[in-house]
Nucleic acid binder design. Structure first.
Lengths: 197, 197, 197, 197
DNA sequence: CATGAATGAGAATTCATTCAT
DNA sequence: GATGAATGAATTCTCATTCAT
């Protein structure tokens, strides 16, 4: 039954709301309970410890991210279109997608100092890079394997950097500018200037 | 007497050490005092509130960052060399420079949910982009103003993304690979494939 | 089940004991917890903040005061007897009633510098004056409305002044003297020297 | 050199200001120092302990009170006028005299739980009652000694009660009403209805 | 005389967790 | 399944005081 969300999911959504609003330090079982309108004991009934709650929240983020990615991969589209769609999802600009960027920033900062979070982050980002590499290879069959990998790594770093900048510095990097820069980068990647025969 | 650091600076260094070791949530006045080997009251004598302590620590990071940048700008070097030096400073790879990357990640995540931090971050990153734009313009006088700005923004985003990835995912993005990718990007930027006459 | 007092009431009684023993500055959650033989957390489980604790304690005083007043109003007694009974309750002399006087003094001093306390005090004392005015009007139907109000205000001020003096200066104003002076004042009020026909 | 106020007196005035503004709990050496614009050490240079500071502040209140009383006793006036003047000073109504009432309330509440304060208060209020008794005796030579004493005690209690009520409950007992009630009471005391010959 | 560093105790409050119901 | 009482540790912060300068 897709789309069905139990009481646990409601709690996790409250966790993510708090995370976006006040960062990692804004999370406490008490506040989650208050935000969800349930008792403290109820939260602890579903998630025995605070760590379990946070881990579950991070898992939920991962799932939602995967779902959004899959939804973007339209059947019948060419690799270039897929690549643009995935890049657009990753750069995640615009007011309604800012929460995703903020959560990503918070999670990455936590990963830098919290090994369990780091493991999840590494696995996931490796998968994303692999996906990008696949699409680049398909769109640019002329490139050598190493070049494909390099392009994928650079692209992912660029998308991460732009997403963070757009979320925190909308003045310097407005959403539409971030998208335009991504498009420019992909243009150069997908339609390189070829030396004349 | 250069290099002399008062008791305040020692406290701030302890704050930064804790920040790198355990992230933002690892900071408490008690732990800072313990780490510095002084009483809690002593910490609060120098920094009235926790916020003042953290703000001062962030300022110290900014100062150190500025100093490192200035030290990189060797007199007599051309804009291309400067650009490579600044980029190397920003991508900040290697074990001994990991603390800088971690602090940068933590600060950015905080900026996403804490407006005062965000303001400092914005001001500073705008200056960094301005510096990059200056250097790009000097190294590529053929580029139009808008293209210069685009290259600067893309370069900074790429450096941010690679620095974060290198700090959190050394498996996927080892330090030397991050540097190589930066070099590759700068090569393309500084020595573009020119159409034949 | 009359007389049943929950754990909250026990805490409030400890608050009042501390208040009488050491005044407003003697109150701290820690000391209340110690006096009640419970943990600090337990106190804060019942009263989230110190202010809530003090407010509840003051409410308890008000309730007890109201109950004592009502117990004094015997059915079938004339207004003169009622007036003497209420006055006796208000002047509140004697060792066993000193706590009531001390709490009243502490509360009034707090009302002078703490608006929320002042509001409660004003409402309550207005009701007391109204009660006195009613009784005076009933006992002295010959008095004009304004005179009744004046007598009530003067009587309440006198009772307050004597109660405070008896509590703090038992040498100058011993309990029995305070009662005698009240009786004297009420004698003059209830049986005025009438000009002969 | 009367009227000369050293730095100590400035500190004491700050103490009294804080007392009126926030009550006894609002006093701390830190805040007094801040309010006076001096360092904490400077305050402690003049008053070794917090208790010494508060004791000195209370003494200053006593001195100022005595001075105001003496200034009211105009030479050449009859005892009735003196009595009215002293009563007016004690009831202390009006916005500009509210601080005096508040300090008196705070001091009395403290006296109820702090023996040293109680001793000072008792001594002083005994003197005030003695003064009132003297004036009553002079104005009403027909009264027996006990009656004089009773009238003095009642008068002082009434003045205290009205002063406190006027300070805390200006709605129920406006300043001018307090003065009118005092005048009414003194009228009855000084010009009693005498039985016709 | 005055300052500021330093300390240690105590303040209120929030927190995660356990347990009985 | 769910609730609320209770606890003990930890939080930031304020406080009075001592001491060296």
């Amino acid at each position: 039954m897709p789309g069905v969300t139990g009481p646990s999911d409601r709690l996790l959504d409250c966790v993510l709301d708090l995370l976006v609003a006040e960062g990692y330090e804004g999370i406490s079982i008490r506040r989650v309970a208050t935000a969800a309108g349930v008792s403290i004991g109820a939260v602890q009934h579903h998630f025995a410890t605070k760590d379990a709650l946070l881990t579950a929240a991070m898992d939920r983020v991962s799932q939602q991210f995967q779902q959004r990615l899959e939804r973007r991969i339209a059947p019948g589209a060419g690799p270039a279109e897929w690549l643009r769609a995935v890049a657009d999802e990753l750069v995640s600009t615009g007011e309604e997608r800012r929460p995703a960027s903020v959560i990503w920033l918070v999670r990455m900062a936590r990963a830098a100092v919290h090994e369990p979070t780091a493991e999840v982050h590494r696995r996931e980002w490796q998968q994303v890079e692999d996906l990008l590499a696949q699409l680049v290879a398909a769109a640019r069959p002329d490139l050598a394997e190493q070049s494909v990998r390099d392009e994928a790594t650079v692209l992912l770093a660029l998308l991460d950097g732009l997403a963070g900048a757009a979320a925190v510095e909308p003045g310097r990097v407005p959403p539409e500018r971030a998208e335009a820069l991504v498009a420019r980068h992909l243009d150069a990647l997908l339609d390189p200037v070829r030396p004349p025969a």
